[in-house]
Simulated scan of single mutants.
Amino acid sequence: MNFALTDEQQMIVETVRSFVEAEIYPFENEVERSGHVPPELGRQIATKCRELGFYACNFPEELGGAGLDHATFTLVERELGRGSMALTVFFGRPSGILMACNDEQRERYLLPAIRGEQIDALAMTEPDAGSDVRGMKCMAKKDGNDWIVNGTKHFISHADIADFVILFAATGEEDTPHGRKKRITCFLVDRGTPGFEIREGYSSVSHRGYKNCVLNFDDCRLSDAQVLGEVHKGFDIANQWLYSTRLTVAASCVGRARRVFDLALSYAAERKQFGKPIGVNQGVSFKLADMITEIDAADLLTLSAASRLDQGLPSNREIASAKLYATEMLARVTDEAIQIYGGMGLMDDLPLARFWRDARVERIWDGTSEIQRHIISRDLLRPLGA
């Protein structure tokens, strides 16, 4: 399999990297200090992204996106991973699940999201239902031609800037080989809908400025027209569209790890102790060798999984492997970079402590490392009847 970049892919990588360096890096320290992104700055980033022609680059050209394939979009996410997530979120990539919109919903939600006129957020996780999605308690009950929603979601990323949320709610139960499970339906819910409240969530040490929110639904009335896909088929939609978001996490981890490595490599070559660069000492040089080997391995795992998606091949295990390895790799690389810098690595004068804190959440969201290992091992054992 050839992973050499085409001329177009190389151009895209260089363009996105330049964008991140020019439009994201200069504002990172202030966002880290304040924990807040000024609205005008977010709009500025989104406008410049649209001017580049990269807004909604993960959507087909006929809908107004750039029509990138999975491998090329993974390269975009890799480069965006170098920057603060609180800022790169405005480099618009609407949720792919919106492709499930019907004709009316396309006009109301999908196309405005692709044009950058509206921002979406996914609302799935609950206080008592994280990895156990079908254990959710947020319920939607039928009432004539409407649905009445009650319940709470939390850890909902960037809901503070969202114009609508893609809500997953329980709408009944069904018998499965593993006992009774909740039936899940997906809804499109506008900000400002009566009975729907978005409030600020928890203060996180990872990705400061990138808000997580709590969503409360109190007798929130939704119409049948707001059902995304089919009633009771929300879990199927999730499986079809959402597992590839784990590939995005893997790619962004690779990008951030490369930024960290570049800093560590330069420091090892420039910093002198006992009259020579510390990088010539085996204790440091071997760290660098291990770091770049792991980064390259994670990069190849991620691109390989993306390539399988482009070929229409089963990719769930491969994506889980990429997400598992890349997120754990990033933790090791950021830790080793700090070790190379010594005490200065922990100071706010450098971004390494931020990268170290940011790395921690990657092993948790979009499926914990334990869930990824479960997916991988299940895929291996099921064909053998185990």
Rank of each mutant, 00 (worst) to 15 (best):
L122Q: 03
E51Q: 12
F355G: 00
K272M: 08
Y243F: 15
D218S: 13
E370V: 11
R256E: 14
L313H: 07
V333H: 12
F274D: 06
L167K: 01
R259N: 02
S285Y: 11
S321D: 06
R354I: 09
L5M: 06
A326P: 10
D224N: 15
A123Y: 01
S315H: 11
L303I: 09
T88Q: 02
G192K: 02
L384K: 06
S307T: 10
T302K: 04
A162Y: 12
I371A: 14
T74R: 08
L300N: 03
G255D: 00
A140E: 07
E61W: 01
R382L: 13
R199A: 05
L265H: 01
H207F: 10
T302I: 04
C49N: 08
A353R: 11
A162H: 10
L309G: 02
E200P: 09
R93E: 14
R17N: 02
R191P: 13
K287S: 04
K323I: 04
H36E: 15
P314Y: 04
M124K: 07
K48M: 01
G312H: 01
A56S: 14
G35V: 10
P314I: 00
V227G: 00
N150M: 00
A140L: 02
R82K: 11
S131G: 13
K323Y: 00
R93I: 03
L68P: 13
A305K: 01
F27T: 10
S266T: 12
L122E: 15
E61R: 11
E8S: 15
A306Q: 13
L167Y: 05
A250T: 10
L5F: 09
E23F: 03
G144K: 14
Q339Y: 09
G172A: 00
V89F: 08
L300S: 07
I198K: 02
S266A: 13
E28S: 09
L122F: 08
L263D: 11
H178A: 13
R363S: 14
T176K: 14
P39K: 15
D358L: 05
G342W: 08
R246W: 02
C57G: 11
R183D: 07
G151S: 00
I184Q: 00
P177G: 13
T245S: 03
R199I: 09
N58P: 12
R221T: 15
C101F: 00
A306M: 07
E28G: 00
A66P: 04
L5C: 01
R357E: 07
R106K: 12
V89E: 10
P351I: 03
A71P: 00
F27R: 04
R357G: 09
K276F: 09
G343E: 06
L242E: 02
V205N: 15
V205T: 05
T368M: 10
E117R: 07
F90A: 06
T368P: 06
G83A: 06
I340A: 03
